[in-house]
Each structure stands twice: as C-alpha cells, then as structure tokens.
C-alpha cells in the first residue's frame, strides 16, 4: 500500500519535473497554450469546480465546526467585496485534522477501506473483464438478455435493496461483520457499469489482431490476456477507478453489515461527526479531505493509462 502511494507521489513528482522541463524548453508553446480558448475554458471550469471545495477546505482548516458567515463590507469596491466571498479561515489551524486522526481509529478505518476498495476493484474487474469480453466477441443465445440483466440491476432503487441484501449477505451467506460480504456486494454493484463500459471499449478494438492470432493457433484465453487486456488499459483504468469509488464512498451497507468498530470502513467513521441535532462539520470536512487523498493519488497513478492504449501502444493499425 505504502509503495503504491510512494509510486503515486513519484508520478506526481515526475509530472512536475516534466512541467518544469517543458517550461524551460518551449516558452513560446506555453505562451500559445495559455492564451488559447482551450486554456481559458479549463481555467474557468477549474475555478467553478474548486470554489465549493474551497468552503470544505477552509472549514477543515479553520479549527472550528461551523463557518464564519460572510459579512459584506459596506462601502468597498466590487472587487474587494467579491474577495470577501472567497472562503478563507480566519486562523489556519490543524486542530480538526488532529482531532479526526487521534480521537478515533481513523487510520485503521482508512486501512480497512483501502483493503475493501482494492479487493472490490480486483474482484469487480476480473468478473467484468471476462464477461465484457464474451459479450463483445462471442455471439451466443441470451447475449442481449444478459446485457439487459446487468442494466436492470441498476434500475431498482438502492434504498429498497437494503433489507433483501441484509437477508442474503448476513442471514443466508453468514457474511455479516466480514469484509468478504462487503466486497462481494460492492463488486457486484459495480459490475453493470464495468461490464457495459468495457464491452463498449472492447467493441472499438480492431478484430484483425485477434483473427490473425487465432490463425496462428493462440487460444481464446491467451488472446484475452495477452492482447485484449493490454490494449484496453485506458478502459480498465476508468472502470477500475469506478469500482474503487463504489466501495470507497459507500456508507449505509457498511454500517449495517459491520458489527465491530475495528472493522468499520472510513465513510462509516466519517458519519460519526454528523447527527440529528449537532454536527461537527469541521471534523467532517477534515475527514473528507483525508478520505479524498488516496483517491487523488490513485488517479495520479492511473493517469498514465489514460494516455496510452491503442493510439500510443505497440500495435498500430
């Protein structure tokens, strides 16, 4: 786990180096980039994306549980008044983070979540890659109906699945209070998207490679593992991220299935800060930021796969 984080950090470092290198190398290109419409669009949308998050960040670092309400200065210029609307804590403090990390076994929950989420990713991907490959490459009776079955599972409102899922996982399978139960449910929840998405990607891969491999006597399994999977790396990265997120942020099933605090996942732990009457939003914000860090590291690491695949890969044409 730590090595994957280190690797992600390295990836970030490398990106930064590359950026600096690029700065030195081609100032004119950068200038051209910066003054393009595309860049303006990206900056604008980044600002829109970041603004609400700034409230979360400033709440987390304020050391308080609720935000100071903005007071518009009466006779200031428009620019100054707008500046006031940028949320920044009055005093920066790490108190919230400290409390979140020390008052409860937060790191342990984070570790539990990592285990569950990675296992979900692996189980979900291996189930969905094989299924998607079959749906994409074979013609067999029940194929369309099978695809539809995956879709139907997403249509039934999750709120009403709670009790039946509890009955199956806890009562029938006896998997209450175990991660296995959670992993099973999460990976199957993620399956429909993964299967549909991967099937879509597999459809875009040219058939010619496979046909020539078949002619040379390669088995289906070899083709699948040696040709298709490497080619579909961008798709696998995307669906893997999705499966990871499915498990990472799920709260209600985890809190229902687990009967021991040391087995809670991190979303369950986070919800301790929110209750009917009083909620400790400062802790919740700090915890949310901590929870999002592994996701960002994972994404940094996955980014490399988003740029390779068929177009950059070895098998052109």
């Amino acid at each position: 786990m730590s090595s994957s984080i280190r690797r992600s950090l390295l990836a970030g470092e490398r990106l930064w180096q590359r950026a600096r290198f690029a700065c030195k190398q081609a100032p004119t290109r950068i200038a051209r980039d910066i003054f393009s419409w595309r860049f303006a669009l990206l900056v604008l949308s980044s600002l829109i994306v970041v603004y609400p998050l700034l409230w979360v960040v400033s709440l987390a670092f304020s050391g308080q549980q609720s935000l100071t309400l903005v007071r518009l200065p009466e006779d200031a210029g428009i620019a100054q008044q707008l500046m006031v609307l940028i949320p920044l804590p009055e005093h920066w403090s790490l108190a919230n983070f400290r409390a979140v990390l020390t008052e409860q076994p937060f790191l342990r929950w984070l570790g539990n979540s990592l285990i569950v989420a990675f296992a979900t990713t692996i189980v979900g991907l291996s189930l969905s890659c094989t299924a998607a490959y079959a749906f994409s490459r074979f013609r067999f009776p029940g194929r369309a109906r099978g695809m539809l079955l995956f879709l139907i599972s997403q249509m039934f409102p999750a709120v009403l699945m709670l009790i039946p899922l509890y009955v199956i996982v806890v009562q029938w399978l006896g998997l209450g209070n175990s991660w296995l139960g959670l992993i099973l449910v999460y990976s199957i929840t993620a399956l429909p998207f993964c299967v549909w998405m991967l099937k879509g990607y597999f459809d875009t891969l040219p058939f010619e490679i496979e046909e020539s491999a078949l002619l040379e006597g390669a088995s289906r399994w070899t083709i699948f593992t040696r040709i298709i999977l490497p080619l579909a790396r961008p798709a696998i990265a995307v669906t893997g991220l999705f499966a990871f997120m499915t498990a990472w942020n799920e709260f209600i099933l985890a809190s229902i299935f687990m009967d021991e605090e040391s087995r809670y996942t991190v979303p369950v732990g986070l919800r301790f800060f929110v209750s009917d009457y009083a909620s400790e939003w400062g802790f919740f914000a700090a915890g949310s930021i901590l929870v999002s860090l592994p996701v960002m590291l994972l994404f940094l690491w996955l980014q490399r796969f988003l740029v390779s695949g068929l177009s950059a890969g070895a098998v052109k044409g």
């Binding site: 994306v49 609400p52 942020n249 930021i289 996701v295 960002m296 980014q303």
Partner: peptide, 11 residues
C-alpha cells in the same frame, strides 16, 4: 485533470 475530478473524489 486532477482538479476537474475533485468533485468525484470528495465525499
């Protein structure tokens, strides 16, 4: 890319 996926990453 990293900034634009943030809304997905934060609960």
């Amino acid at each position: 890319r990293l900034i634009l996926i943030l809304p997905w990453a934060i609960p």
